[in-house]
């Protein structure tokens, strides 16, 4: 719903438009009874009225834009939240990679392989740090 003030600006524009059209209709209906000067004067007035209508309409549109600022902000906030969720869901592959490292750690412990243990510990730590860094 438009603000009543903005609504009135558009009504004013429509009013000038209708007035311009009324003058135009008058010219067409009375063309044969009008002197050249009278006819040209009325054409000038018709064009001026239509130009007023156009300029007032432009003012109204800019007022509408001021009115929807809050809605635009709210919509942008929702969009940002959707984008955050997309990022979060994309971390699933990282979770799988962490699980891979954890299994590697288990294998290293069973087979008493310190090299493999260190390698997988390092991998798991860097993957978890990467997720934490993205969050901040």
């Amino acid at each position: 719903m438009l603000n009543p003030d903005t609504q009135q600006v558009f009504e004013l524009s429509d009013y000038f438009h209708q007035l311009g059209n009324a003058v135009g209709e008058y010219i067409q209906q009375n063309k044969n009874f009008l002197e050249n000067d009278e006819r040209n004067y009325l054409y000038d007035k018709q064009i001026e009225l239509l130009q007023f209508a156009g300029r007032i309409n432009l003012i109204g549109v800019t007022l509408v834009f001021d009115e929807v600022q809050d809605a635009l902000k709210e919509m942008n906030k929702i969009t940002a939240d959707v984008q955050k969720t997309i990022k979060k869901v994309l971390t699933v592959q990282q979770a799988i990679d962490i699980a891979t490292s954890l299994v590697g750690i288990g294998t290293a412990i069973i087979s008493r392989d310190p090299k493999l243990f260190a390698k997988n510990c390092g991998r798991a730590t860097s993957l978890i740090s990467a997720i934490n860094n993205k969050k901040t």
Binding site: H17, Q28, I47, L50, Q51, G54
Partner: peptide, 11 residues
């Protein structure tokens, strides 16, 4: 409005 203004000028 654009069209009708130009039309008035043409007439």
């Amino acid at each position: 409005i654009d069209y009708e203004t130009r039309l008035a000028n043409i007439s």
